[in-house]
Every structure is written in structure tokens, then in C-alpha cells.
Design a protein around this nucleic acid. Structure first.
Lengths: 141, 141
DNA sequence: TAATAATAATTAGTACAACAAATATATTGT
DNA sequence: ACAATATATTTGTTGTACTAATTATTATTA
């Protein structure tokens, strides 16, 4: 049982490295965006005009964190908060034309950066990792 | 290639959940410690009296982060900074008797908490995960 | 309808992560 | 010995995570 103490260390260390690597490459390519902001941009591109609760759910961010990520993205003009017609408590998060153009510009380069981690692994490894991570996630829910 | 965009999300989401789960259980058990502080405590218990650079290396923390983790652990009396005889730039981080007793008290419960994530997986899964995570880590180094 | 509960988002406080820059001390090459 | 370089740690800044509390609005129910 004690040996399982190490998986949490490896998981933490690896996800940190993956994020750090992407962030460094984003900087080198002069993408003016953080990795977490990219995740939001990507999700909005697939499904625009969500409210913050929906967006928090799909990105796996909690509400206060998402609030601050969106504050920063609004400042950059990538997204805007629009009033929600049916519910005055909500904001609709809208990916702007500027945001869309940036997403389109960056996405091929991001895919290339993300693929780097995978260069010494197989399709089977990818399927195994997905299954194992999702099983862990479910076990702790 | 585009499909590999999801592994980073799953990795981030799962390691966050693992950390969050452990932290919640630590709180429930009234361990007065964070998950990152625990990692330092555990490493010092295995090898006491390291300097901060060594400790940063084995815990995978960068130096500024470790400095702040140790500041908090010093306040709680778990560790102390001692002058290093041969090098006045360094501090030797010493796990106190109090720190040792707490480590001993908490370690069986921590192992149990850590094992929870693994309840629906096999030994082979464990070996695969270790190998895949280490391969990713190396590919991005 | 008025009181209560639930929901959407924000704010505040504490902790950690990554990076850059600063400080102090050691080591190296000449 | 002196200058240049390297090492150990700290400080400052920005961004993210989690908790609790707050505000505004909507839904429920007595």
C-alpha cells in the first residue's frame, strides 16, 4: 500500500512539467495568453456564449478562478461579458471576433506543442493513460 | 495530432483532484499540514538535514516555492533552519523531534488516503502509469 | 404576498507555482 | 589577491486553487 504514495508525486510533477513546457513555448511564440486562458478560449471556440457556471464545469475551474481568468481575457479583448436575457444574475461569455481570430491563429501551433510530450509513446499508451486518469478521477469523486 | 490536446486537460484535472482529495481528508483528520508540506516532511524523514537546493530537487519544487513552504513549516515547529558549517550561504533543514513525531503519527493514515485513488485499478495499471508519466516528463526535459 | 431558500457571480484571504531579479557567499582563473 | 563567475536563498510579481462570505436575483413555499 505504501508504494502508492508515489503516484501522486509523479502525477503532480508531470502535470506541472506539461503546463510549464506549454507556457514557455507560448511565450517563445509570443502568444499573449496563459495555458489556462487557452483552455477557456478553446472551449468557447467549440461552444460560444456559455454562462460562467457552464464554462467552469467544462474547463474544470472553480467559479472564483474562472472569474479572474475571464477578467484577464476581457482586458485583452478576447471575450466579453454580455447580459443574459432570461436571468439577470448571469453573464453570457462571448468569444469576440478578435478572440476567434487568435484561436484560429494559435491552434495549429498549440497542437504541435502538445504533441511533443507524446513523441516516445504509442496510441495504446494514450488510451491507457486516458482510462487510468479517468478511473482515478472517478474513484475520488 | 489534435486529439493529444486532451491529455493535458486530463492530467491537470486528475492531479488537481488527487491533491484536493488528500487535502480534504487531511483537514477531516485534523492534520495541521498542506499536501505540499507533507511531501517535504516525508522526504526529510527519509533523509534528514538536507539543504534547500537538495530538498527542492527531490520534492520537485522550485527554490522560491520551497522557501515559502519551509517558512510555514518552521512556524509550526516541524522543521528548523540550521547554519551550514561549510557554506554560509546554505541552511540545513532539520526535521525536529516534533516533526518526526507528527510524521510517524500521520504516515499510516496518509498511505490509506493515497490508496483510495487506486481502488479500481490493477498493479499493471500502476506500472503503466508510472512508465507513461516518466516518459512524458523526460520528453519535455 | 412575504419570508425563505437556492443560484450566479464576485470579493477577500490564504496558499502554492513560475519566473525574474536581488543579495550574500563561494569558487575559479589569472 | 582580484575579478569574474557560480551557487544558495530570498523577495517581488502575476496567476491559479480553495474556502468563506457577500451581493444580487430568482424560485419556492407557507
Amino acid at each position: 500500500m505504501e508504494k502508492f504514495g508515489t503516484y501522486s508525486f509523479l502525477l503532480d510533477r508531470t502535470s506541472k512539467r506539461v503546463k510549464q513546457y506549454a507556457q514557455q513555448r507560448f511565450k517563445e511564440e509570443d502568444f499573449d495568453i496563459t495555458v489556462d486562458q487557452w483552455l477557456v478560449l478553446k472551449n468557447l471556440n467549440e461552444h460560444n456564449d456559455q454562462n460562467q457556471s457552464q464554462l467552469a464545469e467544462v474547463t474544470g475551474k472553480d467559479h472564483p478562478t474562472l472569474t479572474r481568468i475571464l477578467d484577464l481575457m476581457c482586458k485583452k479583448g478576447l471575450v466579453e461579458r454580455k447580459a443574459c436575457a432570461g436571468d439577470r444574475r448571469s453573464f453570457i461569455i462571448h468569444l469576440t471576433d478578435f478572440g476567434k481570430s487568435k484561436q484560429k491563429e494559435w491552434v495549429p501551433k498549440v497542437d504541435k506543442i502538445r504533441a511533443k510530450a507524446w513523441e516516445n509513446l504509442t496510441e495504446q499508451d494514450y488510451q491507457d493513460l486516458k482510462r487510468i486518469l479517468n478511473t482515478i478521477y472517478e474513484s475520488l469523486s
